[in-house]
Structures are given as structure tokens and as C-alpha cells.
Design a protein around this nucleic acid. Structure first.
Lengths: 115, 115
DNA sequence: ACAACTTATCGTATCCATACGATGGGATGG
DNA sequence: CCATCCCATCGTATGGATACGATAAGTTGT
């Protein structure tokens, strides 16, 4: 009784998927740190965040599954970075969703009462 | 053992909260429909969506809690509309989050291997 | 080989999210 | 009033998310 996301248009489903990946402050913080440093070893993220190592690893996996970060093994460490094209695509997709919505608003206003 | 969102900066927590609200295709579809029509009665949304009435009501509540839509009772119906200022703020906040991240990327590139 | 270190994954506990049928309460119209 | 309609909420079921400790699996330096 779950996951009716296939009953919706695929673009909405995809956007929702990415939005969900952004839906936790830890994952936003990870993205910020990765962007600031360009590249980051897992342990650095763990020391930046108020979370246990296992939890950080889980959040990284979520971001990787959503396609927002990429990771590779560098000797004994794991090295992560933002997937720049994906993040640009995200920005574009959000714009494509929000802009028509915002454009429609001034015309169909409801500022004090809707009906 | 949950909800460590208070261990993060409030702006990240807030943005994550809104992103979470966008993290379901039904809620994205609701926002689109509301924006297109300007105003919408609950029943209209129910017939647009492949979901039961109770479920739609729940999604509307989530959007209202996140501050993205507003609703008022109009006689026997419930009338919803997008909260335009909130959506504009969301757009701005997303930009404030993504733009620095995207700006940092070209310099700190990792396009084929990170390390 | 071995000790030390780093990280992913497993196991587990708890809470949140999603979904629906059923119920209830308010409003309208006869 | 009373039947009807509309919707929020309750109850409930199930699956996902979040968190952590413990463990395993890989590397590196000795």
C-alpha cells in the first residue's frame, strides 16, 4: 500500500525524488561542505556533523542514490564530491517547476480570501 | 532517537523542512494545480489526483504546515490557494542555497576523479 | 603478516510518512 | 428539521527514514 509515485508524471516523480534528498538538514550541510571544499573525505564530514559515522555514511548514500554527489575510493578513504551537472540540472528543474507557478500567481491572486 | 534537526543551523533546518514538503509528487501536483487555477476546492484536487480524499486532505495539511498553501472554509467546501509570498521566499531561499554551491563548483572541480 | 585506520554495511530500535476506509461535524437546500 | 454533501480527522496498516553500535572489509605503513 505504498509508493504510488508511478501514478504521477515522471518529471514530477523525479523532482520529488531530488527534493526528498534535500529534505534533511544533514544532507544540505553535506552539500554545502562538499561545495566549499570541492572534495571531501568521509571522515571530514563526520567531524563537521553532529552525527555518528554510520549515519553520515547513510546520508551520503542517499545523496549518491539521488545522483547529487559522487564518490570514489582513494586508498583507505572514500572521497566525495558534488555532481556539478546534476546540481545544475536540479537548479534548472526547480526553476522549470517554480517559475510557471510563480508566474501564474499574480494573475490568479487570492491574497486575502480565496473564494 | 529522532529529529536531530535542532542540531543544525536554523536556516538549513527550515530549508530542509520545505524541501521535504516538495518531496512527494502528489504535493507537487497539488501546487501546480493550485497555481494554474488560482484557487481550488478540495474536491477538485481529489478528482485530479489518483488518491483517496483522505490522502489528499493529508497532503494538503502537510503543505499548509510547511506554509506553502493557505486554506479557508467557504461554506461547505474548503478552498485552497498557494501562499504566493511563501513560494517566492522558497524560490529565493533555494537560490541562496544553490547559487553559492554552484559558484564554488567550477573552481573546485572534480569532474572526473575527485582526489 | 600485522596492527592501525577508514568506511560501508548489518542489525536493530524507533519514529515518520503514506495510504485508505470509516466516522463525525458543519453547511446547504429542500 | 432532515437528508445530503463536503471535508477534516480518527483509526489502522505498512513501509520508509533516521539514528546508532557493532562488525566486516579494504588499505596503508611497519
Amino acid at each position: 500500500m505504498q509508493a504510488k509515485t508511478d501514478l504521477f508524471p515522471p518529471d514530477l516523480a523525479r523532482l520529488a525524488e531530488v527534493a526528498k534528498a534535500l529534505g534533511h538538514p544533514a544532507r544540505l550541510a553535506i552539500l554545502q561542505t562538499l561545495a566549499a571544499r570541492g572534495t571531501c573525505v568521509c571522515g571530514e564530514l563526520v567531524s563537521e556533523l553532529p552525527l555518528a559515522q554510520a549515519t553520515v555514511s547513510q546520508h551520503l548514500k542517499a545523496l549518491k542514490t539521488a545522483g547529487l554527489v559522487r564518490g570514489e575510493v582513494d586508498g583507505p578513504r572514500s572521497c566525495y564530491c558534488v555532481d556539478a551537472p546534476a546540481l545544475r540540472a536540479l537548479s534548472a528543474d526547480l526553476g522549470a517547476f517554480l517559475d510557471p507557478v510563480l508566474d501564474a500567481l499574480p494573475a490568479a491572486n487570492c491574497d486575502d480570501d480565496c473564494c
